[in-house]
Amino acid sequence: MGRMMRVLKLVAALFVVLGLAACGGDSKFRTYNGPAVTKVVVHKADREMQLFHNEKVLKTYKISLGFAPVGHKQIEGDGKTPEGLYYIDRRNPRSRFHLSIGISYPNKADIAYAKSIGKQPGGEIFIHGKTGYKGDNKGDWTWGCIAVPDRQMEDIYAMVRDGTPIYINP
């Protein structure tokens, strides 16, 4: 009887392990073991974002921008993507746009300018996936964020650490 119980417990444990393995096969959380991403560079005019290790390009992505992409974001609701030097400052694993990493907009200069014209600078600027958008995901459609396909966002989320500088060029 003791041997039979051990066999049944072993079989039950095997089913639990196999069941858990089947559930975790399509995780949106990836791992990255390559060179550290030391900077992110966005070229708005080319709709391109590059991840660098020092001066070497590690990855290049096609991107979507704010629905009014020309010019620097100055006020809340203008549909523009910021320009200048910012930093990755947070991450959201439960983003309604799959995954997202935050950009440190607005900085002190952005806040001062908006205040000088009696407006709010806006905020909540992220690099994020495309799930959650009800449109066709083509062209520029965000409120100022940078969007990439979900699978690419999974890689970016794994590769880019908080504190990484992001240069957003016109």
Rank of each mutant, 00 (worst) to 15 (best):
Y105I: 12
K62I: 12
G118C: 02
P93N: 06
I88T: 01
V40N: 04
N33V: 07
A112V: 07
V40I: 15
N33D: 10
A36E: 13
G84M: 00
G77L: 09
E83Y: 01
N92E: 02
F67R: 14
R91L: 01
T31G: 07
K115Y: 11
Y105Q: 06
S95Q: 05
K80V: 04
I88D: 01
R30A: 12
S116Y: 10
V37F: 08
S116V: 10
K28C: 08
K44I: 03
Y113L: 12
H98T: 12
K80F: 04
S95C: 08
G84H: 00
Y86P: 10
V57P: 14
H43T: 08
Q74N: 14
Y105E: 09
K59T: 01
V41T: 11
L51Q: 06
A36W: 00
K73G: 04
F97G: 06
P93E: 13
I117T: 15
L58C: 06
A45Y: 09
I88N: 03
R96L: 09
V40Q: 05
Q74L: 13
A36D: 10
D110A: 06
I63N: 03
D89L: 06
S100W: 00
S64A: 15
K39D: 04
Y87R: 10
A112I: 14
N33L: 12
G118P: 06
R47P: 05
S104Q: 08
G77E: 03
T60S: 15
K28N: 13
Y61V: 08
I111A: 13
P82D: 05
G79F: 03
F97H: 15
F97W: 01
V41G: 02
F97M: 01
P93Y: 01
P93F: 06
G118Q: 04
P35D: 14
G102E: 02
L65R: 01
K59P: 00
T81D: 06
T31P: 00
V57E: 12
N54L: 10
S95R: 10
P82F: 05
L99G: 11
I88F: 00
L85N: 13
D89G: 11
V41N: 01
E76Y: 04
E48G: 15
S64I: 06
D78E: 13
K119L: 04
I63S: 08
T81S: 05
L58N: 02
Y32G: 11
D110Y: 00
F29I: 07
V70Q: 14
E83L: 04
L99C: 07
Y32W: 14
F29G: 02
K108H: 02
D89N: 15
K39C: 15
Y105D: 07
K80D: 03
K28T: 01
L58K: 07
V70N: 14
K108D: 14
P106N: 02
K119Q: 15
P93K: 08
P35T: 09
Q74F: 13
K59F: 03
L99S: 04
Y61A: 07
F29T: 01
I75D: 01
R47D: 03
Y61D: 14
K56S: 11
A36H: 04
G77N: 02
T31A: 00
Y32M: 03
G34F: 00
K119E: 14
